[in-house]
Amino acid sequence: MIYLDNAATTPVRREALEAMWPFLTGSFGNPSSHHRVGEAAAAALTQARQSVARSLGCRPGDVIFTSGGTESDNLAIKGLALGSLRDGAPGHLITTAIEHEAVLETVDYLHRLHGFEVTFLPTDALGRVQADALRQALRPNTRLVSVHYANNEVGTVQPIADLAAITRAAGALFHTDAVQAGGWLPLDVTALGVDALSLSGHKLGAPPGIGVLFVRGRLPLEPLLHGGGQERGKRSGTENVAGAVAFAVALELSLRERSERAARVAHRRDEFIATVLTQSPTARLTGHPTERLPGTASFVFPGTSGEAVLLELEQRGIVCSSGSACAAGSSEPSHVLTAMGLSAEIAQTAVRFTLSASTTAEEVALAAASVHDAVAAVQRLGG
């Protein structure tokens, strides 16, 4: 099997697994407990928080451990938007039409139940948000702008530092969903200029069920979960110490290796893209040709069904995806591709391949040849 669905999830790194193992066994205490076992867990949690803060270039107090990217997005957007209600009536939110569902559903909730106005920024045909579009959308009552760092379907990378600077100059807050960027792109929150940033552990070598939300300083953040007041009152619930330890290790290692790994994977991605486009003349690359995640190659194959191509590829030992794993099972065309201007019919032919650092040149060549065979087989059967 050749696994090319790393944007959906990645295997747990051995280093992360070894680091978390003691906190699933002998040091299993509740970090809120005032005894030796609990205090050992609390010390490990503190060390993990400090490690994450070093990786992000922020203070430990700005790091909130969550259950994953979806919760981090929800807490950032709901928390900051509802926190702003202390200053008056509901205001205005800005996001894009190509965000992950965790962002889109959250802003919809704030619109329906709390009266926030929402503007969806358009993108160009390559999936990039234009700075002028953001400038024109900002209003005096804009509370928060949320734009993802990199798209989970086509891999297009957004100019986050520029967009954050425009937002900050207008007096609004800026959040970025950096779930797909984790381990691939720079994450220094000061350089990016963001007020909040979401990450998910299982995208960068930690296990599922752990995530991080960075929130700058003492910004008013309304908690989603109420209870014992853990995470400095921002996120109640017994902390996942083992997950936090694994996350800290995986994040530190992924950032340490980032430059070399990204260059190597991008080279193999480009080889894969070139071969697919040469061998399968009907294939069209989606997303930005250069400003994209190092491991992401997404295509549409007009005249086919993306799901049928996936089945043919799996029979040939190639595991990939038709888009976001979080939208699996939906019969609707990709909202990302339609927002980029593709027709619903073409959008339903999409297939996404996401490489990892362990993807070999031989696997890339075999996968590209398999794409040609799978597409040809589907076309022979009439789509």
Rank of each mutant, 00 (worst) to 15 (best):
N6W: 02
T10Y: 05
V12T: 14
E18V: 13
T25V: 06
S27C: 00
F28T: 00
N30C: 10
P31Y: 00
H35W: 14
R36F: 00
R36Y: 00
A43Q: 11
Q50M: 10
V52I: 08
A53Q: 01
A53F: 06
S55L: 07
L56T: 00
R59D: 15
D62P: 06
V63T: 03
V63A: 02
T66M: 03
G68D: 01
T70S: 08
L75I: 09
K78L: 14
K78R: 15
L82F: 14
G91D: 06
T95L: 06
A102P: 00
E105C: 02
V107Y: 05
H111E: 12
G115A: 00
F116W: 06
P122R: 06
A125I: 10
L126S: 12
R128V: 15
R128A: 15
Q130C: 12
A131F: 08
N141A: 06
H148F: 13
N152L: 10
V154C: 15
G155Q: 08
T156V: 10
Q158W: 09
D162E: 15
D162M: 11
A172E: 04
L173P: 04
T176R: 08
V179G: 05
Q180G: 01
G183W: 04
L185Q: 06
D188M: 12
A191P: 06
G193I: 07
A206F: 02
P207C: 08
V212P: 03
V212K: 01
G217F: 09
L219D: 04
L221G: 05
E222M: 12
L224F: 06
G228A: 08
S236C: 11
G243R: 04
F247P: 05
L253G: 08
L255I: 07
R264Y: 01
A266K: 10
H267T: 14
H267K: 14
D270T: 04
E271M: 15
T275Q: 15
T278L: 07
A283V: 10
L285Q: 11
T286L: 13
T286G: 03
H288N: 10
P289W: 08
E291M: 14
P294S: 09
S298Y: 06
S305T: 09
E307N: 14
L311K: 12
E332P: 00
S334I: 09
L337A: 13
T338S: 09
G341S: 11
Q348R: 15
V351Q: 05
V351I: 13
A357H: 13
T359D: 01
T359M: 01
V364R: 04
A368V: 05
A369F: 02
S370F: 03
V371L: 13
A374Q: 11
V375S: 08
A377M: 03
Q379V: 14
R380E: 14
